[in-house]
Write a protein that binds this DNA or RNA. Structure first.
Lengths: 325, 325
DNA sequence: CCTGGATGCCGGAACGTTCCGGCAACGTGC
DNA sequence: GCACGTTGCCGGAACGTTCCGGCATCCAGG
């Protein structure tokens, strides 16, 4: 049992019989230290359980060891964002970084004490996003920012392409008139889906059938949209907003018209619905990890500002889009 | 436009014509400073946009200005935990604290750089929770820790009492044999519900009808449990796990036996289900805020270690428990 | 007129780290 | 034998804050 005094680099140096500079250099692999000494210091540090003091380090280096993370507070999408958040946190932990959450609710007196920012689905018009973009901190967003200025890094997915494949699949399953419920253009994700849908319709000479809802649409809103679409001869419904498909499933079921159903966001709910709902798996945890990784590369200079990366997504075909004759 | 040099307390002091000590004292309200000087310094600091350097402050004070937050990574409960997390973050922001997420996934080389910990629903046997409890940091948990040692502060809710009221309500609606689907005793919340149910059954001389599922039970698992209960003459089903009620709703609907349905966790999904599902509103955001608040009081010495606080919850009665004759 | 406490302000040290510059010791090439 | 580069190590300063102790000044009480 040691005394309670904290073990600093001086303790390690003293114990190893070297100066604090040598100890520091040895542990960080910088400077000129013989291999023998390096190992010796490392052993002592390990034995004493030395942990560098983050505050001191960051005071010296003028950094914080923390990245900020903002996600829109939309509870209907919570499962997607929760996974995203966990992905960011785990990737950050691999780089020995902490993650500080920035919510829209908190009014911030001070700028966050972070080295960089990850923005999950930045919505145009969100004041918190605007103010974060204005900090000048290195920033990575998941999906493009639907405004003029772009973050230093962007991770995005080919939603339009994947929606096209989903529509192809639905057509193969017998649908001739698929409808779309999608949110407005304040999110780049929704905007991409909308564009992709219209492009597909043009290419396949199908009359578009779209109903827009708000980004955080609740069940009533998406059901109303679905009902409106059902008034026309629609035979397949693609729901963009997370949770929307499961909300309208009972409605379609009750109508008994055999309308096919698919979601643009996969989740436990779509997977476990009865029947299971075909959905686009956005792989949110991997998306979060990818954003964090890109941010660290930007911070270390490994990646250039303006880098964009494509995050692969997948199509999960399930019973809800098998034709019911 | 100023030069880019960072504005420190020395800048403020120089500009205000006082020493750094006086500037520091003036801004923090400590020491002996005349009211005139205090205002003068405050004005200058405001004008220059002075922001204290957190690293320097915490290096000096041996604290970090950050609290750690752990929640189990259970995606089926994500909406509850998401709200909880946001509640913690916003309360922390009010105290000018940051929140760092601690996930079970990350293997931690170092102890987190935090002043204290909030544990949302600590599960017994969770190795991350165990290791966090072992750090000796001031800790507050939401719900008791179902182990031997308790955290320094606990925020809990009267789940058993509220379940009793829910059961009373269901009985008033005509049920004579309510069943319960509940998770195991690794969470204190589930354990309380189970105890409460058994106590109610004893008091009302009703034969208990319980099926246990795992804490992160998926739809299949809860549906299997519900089906097993339906084999006996059950006329109301109380689902404890978040999301469980909405998962079994179609099943009950299909059975067409008019079984009443209620959930022990409210959410957008239960609210918007068809018919809307009666549920206990755990007010997760307020719970998170309450945990954070208690932690800050512990840190500042305002609250005694061992403090327990009751977090009020509410019953939301909806159509799913109105008798269908 | 002296004492002593209160008031207002200040200099310097400390927190634990990184890093610049320097200093011996030791080859190595001329 | 001398200049010079390399290697291994070190002392001290700096980062921005807080806080301890001290130093004038002022006023009241004797």
């Amino acid at each position: 049992m040691h005394a309670d005094e904290p073990v600093t680099i001086l303790t390690v140096a003293r114990e190893a019989g070297v100066s604090k500079t040598t100890a520091s250099d040895a542990l960080r692999g910088s400077g000129r230290v013989s291999e023998r000494t390096r190992e010796q210091v490392a052993r002592v540090a390990e034995r004493l359980g030395y942990v560098p003091n983050g505050s001191a380090r960051h005071l010296r280096k003028a950094s914080t060891g923390t990245i900020g993370l903002h996600v829109p507070e939309v509870l209907t999408r919570s499962s997607y964002y929760m996974s995203f958040v966990f992905g960011v946190v785990e990737q950050a932990a691999r780089h020995d970084y902490d993650v500080t959450l920035i919510t829209s609710g908190q009014r911030r007196a001070r700028p966050p004490r972070v080295d960089g920012l990850v923005l999950g689905d930045p919505l145009s018009g969100d004041p918190v996003v605007e103010s974060l973009m204005a900090t000048g901190l290195p920033t990575v967003s998941c999906e493009r920012f639907p405004g003029d200025r772009q973050p230093d890094g962007v991770v995005w997915s080919e939603h339009a392409v994947m929606l096209g494949r989903l529509l192809d699949h639905v057509r193969d399953a017998g649908s001739t008139r698929p409808g779309l419920v999608v949110a407005g253009d304040e999110s780049d994700w929704a905007a991409s889906l909308h564009r992709g849908y219209l492009a597909w319709c043009t290419a396949k000479r199908v009359e578009p059938l779209v109903r827009r809802v708000s980004f955080d649409a609740n069940g009533d809103e998406v059901r109303a949209a679905a009902r409106a679409l059902l008034a026309t001869p629609m035979d397949a419904l693609i729901c963009a907003p997370a949770g929307a498909a499961t909300e309208v499933a009972p409605l379609l079921h009750a109508s008994g018209t055999g309308v096919l159903l698919a979601s643009c966001v996969d989740s436990a709910a779509t997977r476990l619905a009865d029947p299971p709902i075909t959905a686009i798996d956005l792989r949110p945890k991997e998306a979060g990890a990818s954003c964090a990784e890109l941010l660290f590369e930007l911070l270390s200079g490994t990646a250039e500002p303006g880098t964009e990366r494509v995050h692969p997504i997948a199509l999960a075909i399930r019973a809800s889009t098998t034709p019911r004759p």
